[in-house]
């Protein structure tokens, strides 16, 4: 079933450039179910020097 990609925003440290992306829930639910709790995209341990910090969402 196609659902809004925004349902999976918790996986990301950044906002989407479009709110209209739709994804297959079966596939993305499986990802959400299996990734470790602390998992986020992008991997700042590797790409921090290349990422504009203003684009990152501040999480409390």
């Amino acid at each position: 079933m196609q659902v809004p990609g925004s349902l999976y925003s918790n996986l990301f440290l950044t906002r989407p450039s479009s709110d209209e992306i739709r994804v297959e829930s079966l596939i993305w639910n499986r990802i959400i179910e299996h990734v470790p709790d602390h998992y986020v995209i992008p991997d700042l341990q590797v790409v921090a020097p290349f990422v504009d910090t203003n684009s990152l969402i501040t999480r409390t």
Partner: peptide, 25 residues
């Protein structure tokens, strides 16, 4: 099945300024 959502979140991060790094990521 994966790329459109990942790409929509990374397009505006500055990563895309170096295409080799962006596509690898």
């Amino acid at each position: 099945s994966y790329l459109p959502l990942i790409e929509s979140h990374l397009r505006q991060t500055g990563l895309a300024t170096v295409p080799v790094i962006y596509h690898n990521e």
